[in-house]
Deep mutational scan, measured.
Amino acid sequence: LEELEQFAKTFKQRRIKLGFTQGDVGLAMGKLYGNDFSQTTISRFEALNLSFKNMCKLKPLLEKWLNDAE
Rank of each mutant, 00 (worst) to 15 (best):
L1N: 07
L1I: 13
L1V: 10
E2N: 15
E2K: 15
E2Y: 09
E2T: 04
E3I: 05
E3L: 06
E3A: 05
E3V: 05
E3F: 04
E3K: 05
E5N: 08
E5T: 12
E5S: 09
E5G: 11
Q6P: 03
Q6N: 15
Q6S: 11
Q6C: 08
Q6A: 14
F7Y: 04
F7R: 02
A8F: 01
A8R: 04
A8Q: 03
K9H: 02
K9P: 02
K9Y: 07
K9V: 05
T10Y: 07
T10E: 15
T10D: 07
T10L: 12
T10R: 09
F11N: 00
F11W: 06
F11C: 05
F11D: 00
F11R: 00
K12F: 03
K12Q: 10
K12T: 12
K12P: 06
Q13E: 12
Q13F: 08
Q13V: 12
Q13H: 14
Q13K: 15
Q13L: 12
R14V: 12
R14E: 14
R14W: 03
R15E: 00
R15M: 00
R15Y: 02
R15S: 00
I16W: 03
I16E: 15
I16K: 11
K17T: 10
K17W: 09
K17C: 09
K17V: 08
K17I: 06
G19D: 03
F20R: 06
F20V: 11
F20W: 13
T21Y: 01
T21N: 10
T21K: 07
T21V: 02
T21F: 01
Q22M: 05
Q22L: 13
Q22V: 13
Q22K: 15
Q22H: 05
Q22S: 12
G23L: 12
G23N: 14
G23P: 05
D24E: 12
V25K: 01
G26N: 10
L27R: 14
L27G: 07
L27E: 13
L27T: 08
L27H: 15
L27F: 14
L27D: 05
A28D: 07
A28N: 08
M29H: 01
M29I: 12
M29P: 00
G30C: 13
G30Q: 15
G30N: 05
G30W: 13
K31P: 05
K31T: 06
K31R: 14
K31N: 03
K31Y: 07
L32G: 06
L32M: 06
L32V: 03
Y33A: 09
Y33W: 05
Y33F: 10
G34F: 03
G34A: 10
G34I: 04
G34Q: 09
N35M: 05
N35Q: 13
N35I: 15
N35Y: 02
D36L: 14
D36R: 09
D36S: 08
F37P: 04
F37H: 07
F37V: 15
F37Y: 05
F37E: 04
F37R: 02
S38F: 04
S38T: 14
Q39Y: 11
Q39H: 14
Q39K: 14
Q39F: 05
Q39S: 14
T40V: 11
T40R: 14
T40Y: 15
T40W: 08
T41M: 10
T41C: 07
T41F: 06
T41A: 11
T41N: 10
I42T: 02
I42S: 00
I42H: 00
I42K: 01
I42E: 00
I42P: 00
I42L: 07
I42N: 01
S43N: 13
S43T: 12
S43C: 10
R44E: 08
R44K: 09
R44T: 06
F45W: 03
E46Q: 00
E46P: 00
E46C: 01
E46W: 01
E46H: 00
L48V: 06
L48P: 02
L48K: 15
L48F: 08
L48H: 11
N49W: 03
N49K: 09
N49I: 14
L50N: 02
L50A: 05
L50K: 01
L50E: 09
L50C: 13
S51A: 08
S51I: 01
S51P: 13
S51N: 06
S51D: 15
F52K: 11
F52H: 15
F52L: 12
K53M: 15
K53T: 10
K53C: 14
N54Y: 12
N54M: 12
N54V: 13
M55W: 03
M55V: 04
M55Q: 10
C56A: 13
C56H: 06
C56Q: 15
C56I: 11
C56E: 13
K57R: 09
K57M: 07
K57P: 02
K57H: 07
K57G: 06
L58C: 11
L58P: 01
K59P: 01
K59R: 12
K59I: 05
P60E: 13
P60N: 06
P60G: 12
P60W: 03
L61A: 10
L61Q: 08
L61F: 12
L62R: 00
L62M: 12
L62V: 06
L62N: 00
E63F: 04
E63C: 02
E63W: 07
E63A: 15
E63V: 06
K64C: 05
K64Y: 03
W65E: 01
W65K: 00
W65M: 03
L66I: 11
L66E: 02
L66K: 02
D68Y: 07
D68S: 14
D68G: 12
D68K: 11
A69W: 07
A69I: 10
A69P: 05
A69Y: 09
E70A: 01
E70I: 09
E70W: 15
